[in-house]
Design a protein around this nucleic acid. Sequence first.
DNA 1: CGTGCCAGGTGCCCT
DNA 2: AGGGCACTTGGCACG
Lengths: 273, 273
Amino acid sequence: MGCRESGEDYYKIVNIHIYKNLDELKDLLNKYIYHKDHIIIIVGYMKIIYRGRASSEADYARRLLMIKPDGTLLIHEARGRDPVNWQPPGSICSFGIENQELKLRCQRQQYNEEVIVYFKDLFHIGVAILDVSNFFEVKGVERDIVDQIISTGLPIDRNAKLVGKEISTPHGKIDLVYINNERNIMYIIEVKNEKAGVAAVDQLRRYVEYMKQHSRGRNIIGVLIANGISDEAIKLILTYDFIFLNIRNLRIIKRERKLDTYLKDSSVNSLSS
Amino acid sequence: MGCRESGEDYYKIVNIHIYKNLDELKDLLNKYIYHKDHIIIIVGYMKIIYRGRASSEADYARRLLMIKPDGTLLIHEARGRDPVNWQPPGSICSFGIENQELKLRCQRQQYNEEVIVYFKDLFHIGVAILDVSNFFEVKGVERDIVDQIISTGLPIDRNAKLVGKEISTPHGKIDLVYINNERNIMYIIEVKNEKAGVAAVDQLRRYVEYMKQHSRGRNIIGVLIANGISDEAIKLILTYDFIFLNIRNLRIIKRERKLDTYLKDSSVNSLSS
DNA sequence: CGTGCCAGGTGCCCT
DNA sequence: AGGGCACTTGGCACG
């Protein structure tokens, strides 16, 4: 907790009182926009107008506004994870003055969208220097689950060979395709890191139907691997004679259970959630 | 731009130097958590550990952290619209000390998730009082498009009568259902405010197939109304003999074009995008 | 409260 | 740049 003093290099408070007119302030703020790693933070009493894919107006209220050097605009209120208004990276922001009020306009080429903010009052302006941490590990996402399956093999049929990954079809991309040549079976695998709903089953279904038309004679089995499943989705799984595997069981199996147990489970469409 | 002084009521800078030990600072910050409308803002050099549905570790770097009174946690870096780590509303946050570092733990009951932040250095701490603006108009969303269709009628068949809205099926909810009794036609309408992809067509397809099985004898026609459409989606539309209507044309038609033109378009699966 | 689904989704990766 | 899709999706509305 040592170097508090050096910290001042990384957060500069813009003393609003110093600027006797808005022009100076406006120019200063415009200078900070797009400065490498410089984030402008404004807490104030502001009105917001957004026009684009949708449109909105928000009357004057106390809000927190941030502008990042990549052109991101964020406006937050007292609640909620998402900003009430925003502009994604790549938008072009600039400060101006209108009717003796500080004004911010952020435009986005794509979608022809813009956010305009009018500041009736400013409570705090700061400029922070932030990092972009390159190394940021994430584990447990779908990618990792797919990788795990690839490395450990298809639990329901260890003799099946992986023949494809991210297979493109007109209906979308199939996560994994396995084939057991002896039994003449093709497994179409769809992986969901989240709880599966009806949409996930139907996504699998359209892959299976497509492959049935393009892989003549082969036995096609749809396999949904997900982190739980909804009741309606289970009904569809049974209707289509698909197989559902819970990720939780996948992990347990990998560590403790024997493969024979799996094969038994799979043959009766184990639906343990 | 008058009341700058009063603005100080809405943004309080926590002078880090005053607090001779971390204990005092920790207690102060904990007092501000969940204070009505009080948002804690910390710019500092911090390390983040997240464990939950996924998991991640981010080494020490300069970041901006916010805690909202509803239990929202946001941690931003220099780029991107989304925070690098967060906790949605409803999580429980508290400051502590570990290894002579300030430490923040935010837990979320649901999903058993937690974010832990270690602060090696603090550059700025502020407490802002923000509003929750109740009145926030949004126009142009799908809901409004559906309403517009309901009020102006189905453009491709003005004689069709609306018989259902948000019809639940095992495959999901159908946006709109129209019936023309004279021609014995049922229209299944799916509306997308955005550009339609293959998923949208397949969503419509599963509704149509379901209704074909549950509405014996009737002619079922799938209608996709969207803001543009991708090439692959067009192919599927043609494959399934569906009808695509561009929202843009919907609006134009409503204002300028005559209905006869529509009917002609629809009969040839107008795909103007 | 779970289920389903839209969103100004955003971000990522691939063609 | 466009398309397809996952996401700690978040958020809402409905049964």
